[in-house]
Design a binder for these strands. Structure first.
Length: 107
DNA sequence: TTAGTGACTGTAG
DNA sequence: GCTACAGCCACTA
């Protein structure tokens, strides 16, 4: 069964460049339902068991907060991965978030 | 089949 | 700036 929604979410998330981040709303907007951002997060949750690696740690809410960190193996995993890419995080919030924000305009 | 839930966002007060 | 409400789609029980 091809839901379509999942594949679109995965496809966009996989396009996020190294050291960049995006938001659930932007992804949902590209799919066609900006208000279905909740589904994006939920799809990413399922992506943890996907065969191919999905950089879900690069997806945060519109405030730049790591709301999904709790869904990783360890709460620090998401922060560690982002810091590993040169992204600074303070109090679960991405610093210079607006500058690191990536827009999937090539999709 | 119906009802409940969710890693969110935009609008309104 | 904050709080509150509604909407969105797919999944699970």
């Amino acid at each position: 069964m091809e839901t379509g929604f999942f594949e679109k979410v995965y496809d966009i998330v996989r396009q996020i460049p190294y050291g960049r981040v995006t938001t659930y709303g932007i992804i949902a907007a590209h799919i066609g339902s900006p208000q279905a951002a909740r589904m994006v997060g939920w799809a990413l949750n399922k992506s943890a068991g996907e065969k191919e690696f999905i950089p879900a740690h690069r997806v945060v809410n519109r405030k730049g907060l790591l709301t999904g960190k709790h869904y990783f193996a360890n709460e620090n995993t998401m922060k560690e991965m982002l810091e590993s890419e040169g992204i600074k995080i303070i109090d679960n919030q991405i610093q210079n978030f607006k500058d690191l924000l990536w827009h999937p305009d090539s999709y």
